[in-house]
């Protein structure tokens, strides 16, 4: 849809992706303004209900990003997250959410450039999906 700016919530892990985001900032890598980050200690801390809450509250997409497999600061929290998100991706479409509204990536602490690129690509993808109509359609 023309002229709509998606709002994307990103749950990022403190040790890797949050640091990468800081690095992207220090390096002044220009990014679209649509992504708001919520700092988690580890992607393993991301409860599926946070994703659902965000989508129900009207977020157009949710990004979860953490350390590369094998490099998790807490050994394997990111692997546990991957399992949860995989299941969640299968459930979401049944509730009317396009599975493209949930994305998981691995971005390491030194990968500021990858972070900026991921944000740009994600905004383009989510724009193409159109806005999340949940708030308009939800009956309380």
């Amino acid at each position: 849809m023309e002229g709509y700016e998606p709002t994307i919530i990103a749950f990022v892990c403190n040790w890797c992706t949050y640091t990468a985001a800081d690095l992207a900032g220090t390096s002044r890598l220009i990014q679209p303004f649509n992504v708001r980050m919520i700092r988690m200690m580890c992607t393993g801390m991301v409860d599926p209900k946070y994703v659902i809450k965000a989508l129900l509250e009207g977020a157009d997409a949710v990004l979860i990003s953490g350390c590369h497999p094998g490099d998790c600061h807490y050994i394997n929290g990111n692997l546990k997250a991957r399992r949860r998100i995989k299941l969640l991706k299968e459930i979401l479409p049944r509730f009317g959410f396009h599975e493209g509204r949930l994305k998981m990536t691995w971005i390491g602490a030194s990968e500021g450039i990858d972070f900026a690129r991921t944000i740009k690509e994600l905004v383009v993808e989510v724009k193409a999906l159109g806005p999340n109509e949940t708030r308009k359609q939800m009956v309380l």
Partner: peptide
């Protein structure tokens, strides 16, 4: 305090303080 337990706990009994 990594949150692996709280991220899973189905009853919400496990929680990380400050998160």
């Amino acid at each position: 305090g990594c949150g692996s337990c709280s991220g899973f706990c189905p009853s919400g009994a496990a929680r990380i303080k400050h998160f």
